[in-house]
Amino acid sequence: MDMSAPTDRPGRPSIGITALGSYVPARVVTNADFEAYMETNAEWIESRTGIRERRFSAPDEYTSDVGVGAVRDMLDRDPDALKGVDAVICATVSPDALMPSTAALIAMQVGLTGAAAFDLSTACSGFVYALSVASGLIQSGAAQRVLVVGAEALSKIVDQQDRGTAILFGDGAGAAVVGPVPAGLGFQEFIMGADGAGGSSLYLRNVAPHLPGGFEMGDSVGMNGREVFKFAVRVLGDSGQKVLQKSGLTSADVDWVIPHQANVRIIEAAVERFGIPMSKTVINLDRYGNTSSATVPLALREAVDDGRVQDGQQLLLIAFGGGLSWVAGTMKWWAGAPSLKAKAVSTLAGVEA
């Protein structure tokens, strides 16, 4: 599915990100922590994934809590960031509840009661999916500004005894306001897709005990790592190439790739497919692991804070997730709002040094 958000459509404003915030829980879980109860070692984990540590939420800290943390970080940077927001989308696969939506719970706590609110569930591709949906809502006139939150408390739904998944995932959140930006900047094109036939490679049971066709699901995140790896390398490379072509761009035009932070080997193989060097790729999974829908905004927030992403630069966002799903988007970065300015940061996303 191709979904366009032209930056120069006559009579309509250009649409992009007008505010950013991020949050990660305080608890750091290192690779060495798994050695105490699992047949693994820190070097093995890092060599195969690129991950050194991740964050786990507190026992009483859930997805709405980390999402609110990201929004509050945004408001600390820009108290007017939510002005005019009339819709909230939360991309998550670890919602507090099936109903009410986590988006509604976040909206209630950040002063947006009455705004339209709903959750979007495409796992790790969710945040970029939600940016496209938000852009479409604004272009159609259904919303003026949209708060998009990618938030996860994956430590609550991952079997911590399963070496195939426990070592990969962490908790965190990123938040962005989508709204009008100056002409020539903002979102350019989006490409989205999904293939339910791959659902048995990455899944989480909710109601049904099995998928269509009879595949039995367990009660925690299940993953066929080998199949997901092959899928991810292919769709990240292909969707990246397609969205660049649709945008009238080439790999040489890209200043920064902001990829889903699943596995450094996946990222290396994917960007190689469309000829963009790793030196132009934002990586922070070494410190946060795979936070699913939160990875792209966490990486973007960090790259903006440390000055890598600057006004007018060309960005390529790529992600894959459960479904199996994929998404890619292009955008010209606008750095004109208070929360989009570079600032010195510590290793905690969204926290000043």
Score class of each variant (00 low, 15 high):
M217F: 10
P212T: 04
T63S: 01
V345Y: 10
L340P: 04
G321K: 07
L324T: 03
A197P: 02
M108F: 15
A183C: 07
P100D: 01
G21Y: 01
S101V: 03
P182E: 02
D159A: 04
A303E: 08
R48Q: 01
G237W: 13
S155E: 03
F231T: 00
D76F: 05
G170Q: 04
A335R: 09
L324P: 12
D311F: 09
D80A: 11
A26C: 08
N263V: 00
G170K: 11
G196H: 08
D162V: 07
V71T: 05
A134V: 07
G350N: 09
Q310V: 01
L348T: 14
M331N: 07
L317A: 06
P182R: 14
I266V: 13
P182V: 07
G50F: 00
V128A: 03
M38L: 15
P10W: 11
L75Y: 03
A262I: 09
V128P: 11
V309M: 09
G218F: 03
Q241S: 15
A262M: 02
A328S: 08
T92G: 02
I276C: 07
D73Q: 12
R77N: 06
A87F: 13
V146L: 05
G329M: 06
K83G: 04
L249A: 01
A115F: 11
T347W: 13
N206Q: 14
T330R: 12
Q261M: 05
V254L: 10
A344I: 12
T40V: 02
I157K: 10
G218H: 09
V233F: 01
A87Q: 10
T102I: 00
A42V: 01
G193M: 01
E189G: 11
V29N: 08
M108N: 15
P209V: 01
E352L: 13
V254E: 03
G114I: 03
A58T: 03
V148N: 02
V257P: 06
S132V: 06
A176L: 04
M223S: 05
V257D: 02
S22N: 03
G350T: 02
V351K: 15
Q144L: 11
G114Q: 05
R265I: 00
E35H: 12
S155Q: 09
Y23R: 09
A115S: 14
A335F: 01
